[in-house]
């Protein structure tokens, strides 16, 4: 790298992978999230932090175009709607039927469907991409296992592999740390770091400050509206966090945000 750009402040002229400006989102007539203004540069990661119901999932769905935007703009690599295949999305695993008869590698192959198109069956290049994606998340030896037989953490990594297999430019993760043990957390963090090195932009919603500290340069604090956005350590102040979590009793340590009456994570 010749240019010495600070990690925290992206070059003004660089093309953002995701740019959200003065955006509001709504479920039907009900406004769900207002005043969102931030961007994610290629190779960088932003953590979405806020209490339950603060609009983290809403924002992810708004970026995916699954819920209505009532004002402002959203651009993925300068375009809206996002070109097919630009966004990789890792949903929460609790929606998935554990009895569904499908193997891990078949789930990951779904990441290739969009580029395959209707009618076409996967080719050798697709199989290679799937195998590589599974190696990337450290599940190369579980390819044939039925998805429902994997542990929650492995399922989460499997869905991440599906997103990786689609070679996205922007990766959206919805609470990827929920219910994960340390081994799976480490594997997930490693994968996200590797993707960032490849220039993938990452937006991850989380309760977990470890994840934010490990991979995110910036933090977006939410509480039905944007509370703060900026470099991680500038945003994650006790005052800001208390503002987002709406409680003066909120405490914060190295790893987690503790809301009175809710326990930690």
């Amino acid at each position: 790298m010749i240019e010495n750009t600070s990690q925290e402040t992206p070059r003004a002229n660089a093309a953002a992978a995701l740019r959200v400006a003065a955006a509001s989102f709504a479920y039907g007539a009900e406004p769900a999230l207002t005043g969102i203004d931030f961007q994610v540069m290629p190779g960088q990661a932003v953590a979405l932090i806020g209490p339950n119901g603060s609009g983290k999932s809403t924002l992810l769905k708004g970026i995916l175009g699954l819920i209505a935007r009532t004002s402002g703009t959203v651009e993925v690599l300068g375009a809206w709607p996002a070109p097919a295949g630009y966004i990789g999305y890792v949903p929460q695993t609790d929606q998935i039927d554990p009895h569904f008869p499908i193997s891990l590698e078949q789930v990951v192959m779904m990441g290739r469907y969009r580029s395959l198109g209707w009618w076409r069956m996967p080719a050798k290049a697709d199989r290679r991409a799937v195998a590589e994606a599974l190696e990337t998340v450290g599940l190369g030896n579980r390819a044939k296992t039925r998805f429902g037989e994997l542990s929650g953490g492995q399922q989460q990594r499997g869905l991440l592999a599906r997103a990786v297999a689609s070679a996205p430019r922007l990766l959206l993760l919805d609470e990827p740390f929920n219910g994960l043990d340390q081994v799976n957390r480490d594997a997930l963090i490693e994968t996200v770091k590797r993707l960032k090195q490849q220039g993938v932009a990452v937006l991850v919603s989380t309760h977990d400050l470890d994840l934010a500290r490990a991979v995110c340069e910036s933090v977006l604090l939410l509480n039905g509206a944007q509370v703060a956005f900026g470099p991680r350590d500038e945003v994650l102040t006790l005052t800001n966090v208390q503002k987002a979590f709406g409680s003066v009793g909120v405490e914060m340590d190295e790893h987690t945000i503790v809301v009175p009456g809710h326990g930690g994570h």
Partner: peptide, 18 residues
């Protein structure tokens, strides 16, 4: 067929994939 299976397995994922 493969899209139908995708949708059956994971509606949100299929939506997100476009």
């Amino acid at each position: 067929l493969k899209e139908q299976v995708f949708r059956a397995f994971d509606l949100e994922g299929a939506l997100a994939a476009g």
